[in-house]
Every structure is written in C-alpha cells, then in structure tokens.
C-alpha cells in the first residue's frame, strides 16, 4: 500500500472516531441537543467502502450517518455546525444529525427513517443508467432495515433493471436493543439476496482492507453494467444506540471483545508491521486530526443560529 493512501484512510477513520467522541462530549454538556447516533467502531466500513468510489459517485446514508458524511468528503466544520443546528451547517441547521446531506459531494443524505433511503439509492441507480454516466451508488443501511418492506421492494427493482447499486448492510448485531438473532429469520444475512438473484458477500467490517477489496469488486461489477450486489459488513457500534441507551441487551464482555478488533488499531498495526508508517507518524497524525476536530468544534460553537426568516425558506423552489 502506498504511504499516501494509507495516511488518507487512517486519517479519515481517525476523523470519524474523534468527531464522534467530540459529539458525545458535546451531548453530555448539552451543547449539542437532541439525538445523535454515533458511528464509532464502524469506521472501516464507511471509509473503506467510500474510498473506492469516484468523487461523483453517490451514497445514501442512515440515521447513523456522521461517518458516511465525513468519508464522502464532508467538511468537518460544516458537519459539526449542522449537528449544533447552526446557520453555517451543511443543511443550514435545518436537518441536524439525522439529516446530514451534501449533494455537492454525492451524499444523498442521512435519514431519520430506518430503510428510508433505500428507495433513493435505487432511484439514483435508475438516473445513472438513464443518463449513461457510469456512476455507481452505495446504499448504506443497518441490519434493522432488512425487515422493512422497502428493502425487498428496492432489491427486486434493482435486480429487474440491473441497476448499478451496491446495497451495503452494516450489520452491527443490533437494531436499537433488538439483536439480529431475535429480529431476523435468516442467520446468514447474505441469503436475503438469494430471493432477488443478487450476488452477495459478507466481509469483516472491522478490517478496512477487506472492506475495500470487496466493495471494489462490486463497484467494478456495477460500473460494467452487471447490476446490483448485496454486501454485509460485520461490525459493531461502540456507543449505545443513542445517549439514553443503558445497553442492557448486550454484555460488557461482548463490547470488550469487539474493541479488541478496533478498526483503527488493527489498521495502524498493519501499517507499522508492513513498514508503511512509523508509530510516531501515526501519533502525529492523530494529533493533527485532533486539532482539526477542535477547530471544527470552535467554528460550530461560534457560528450564528439561523435567522427567524429561515423558518419559511427552502420549502419550495
């Protein structure tokens, strides 16, 4: 792996981790209000998958969307400001954590509705085909969305019309408090794609290189006009579902065992062992990321709130 590329991937993952830790801190201090679903622990999925896309490719995101937004080129100050509901936010403070979107970067948006963006991804796939642009779409969604009607409707549509969409399930074992085991009839989630004749694969979502390899394969497949695919990335969210979650449905031992597979530590180790980066370089990188997060936080906190007139703006064109 090229040094530059390694730094890019590691830096993005660190940005997400530190961004989420910062949001958690701001929530605790009531500087950030409302809910925020944090992506810490799952960084390798968003960063790995999006790193093989072209800048003009599309993604759709979820209620746990900070990681996708950062990986897709979102600017940290604008994202932070959005979460604080500030006028300088990427959606002018109107969307918030649950609705981060940046159309200029191909991010068709986070979504407060579980499964809410699967249709959007499918439609973007139709548009790409009709406009003959060779773009591809990654549709991110959680294991919880697998039991929504729109998951099935979308996969069927995409299969029939050979749409260039990668349906990427972030399987973090739980949808809020309900485990995949308790909610979903099939144990091997890739089997869901069988019903639609869509090729499927599962991958270690804590290993950024594994994610990249798999996504690259299905992105190429889509670009070549071969149609949709279904990828299950096994991962884990470190924080509770949201701030009020006491995590009674999982054990501290389980949490610990997943932290031992931490995607940032794992990748850092590989880079050191492969003589791509030195430990000091990684420490230095972490420090630089921290400075950027602090700057973004300062920007967001000092930014003005929206003006009252904004209430009625942007409803119609």
């Amino acid at each position: 792996m090229e040094k530059e590329e390694a730094i890019f991937l590691l830096k993005k993952m660190m940005q997400i981790r530190q961004f989420e830790d910062k949001i958690s801190e701001l929530l605790g201090k009531n500087i950030a209000q409302g809910g925020s679903h944090l992506y810490a622990g799952e960084e390798a999925v968003a960063v790995g998958a999006i790193s093989v896309l072209n800048p003009d490719d599309y993604i759709t995101s979820t209620h746990r969307g900070h990681g996708h937004a950062i990986a897709k080129g979102g600017k940290l100050p604008e994202l932070m400001a959005e979460i604080l509901g500030k006028a300088t936010g990427v959606c002018k403070g109107k969307g918030g954590s649950l609705h981060l979107a940046d159309l200029s970067q191909g991010n068709l948006g986070a979504n407060g509705i579980v499964g809410g963006s699967l249709g959007i991804a499918t439609g973007a796939g139709i548009s790409v085909k009709m406009r003959k642009t060779k773009q591809v779409v990654i549709s991110f969604f959680g294991d919880g969305a697998l039991n929504q009607g729109i998951f099935h409707e979308s996969l069927n549509m995409a299969a029939k019309w050979h749409l260039p969409v990668i349906y990427l399930c972030e399987n973090n074992l739980y949808a809020m408090s309900v485990s995949v085991k308790r909610a979903t009839a099939v144990e091997d989630l890739t089997r869901r794609a069988l019903a639609y004749d869509i090729p499927a694969e599962k991958v270690d979502g804590m290993d950024i290189l594994a994610v990249r390899k798999a996504v690259k394969k299905w992105v190429d497949f889509a670009r070549e006009g071969k149609g949709p695919s279904f990828l299950v990335c096994n991962t884990y969210r470190y924080y509770g579902h949201s701030r009020s979650d006491a995590r009674v449905y999982r054990t501290r031992e389980e949490e610990k065992s997943w932290r031992e597979k931490d995607p940032i530590i794992l990748f850092s180790k590989k880079l050191i062992e492969g003589n791509v980066l030195k430990e000091e370089e990684i420490k230095d990188l972490e420090k630089k990321v921290r400075e950027k997060i602090e700057a973004a936080t300062k920007f967001a906190m000092e930014s003005p709130l929206p003006e009252p007139e904004a209430l009625y703006e942007d409803l119609y064109v």
């Binding site: 409302g34 509901g85 109107k94 609705h99 929206p306 904004a310 209430l311």
Partner: peptide, 16 residues
C-alpha cells in the same frame, strides 16, 4: 404550528 417540516435548529423549532 408553522406550515413547514420541523427544522432541527432549537431556535427555529421554538418558532415553529
């Protein structure tokens, strides 16, 4: 309530 989707920003939410 105002005839708008509910905005996130605390200040706009109050106004709505």
């Amino acid at each position: 309530g105002a005839d708008v989707p509910m905005p996130k920003s605390p200040i706009l939410e109050k106004l709505a």
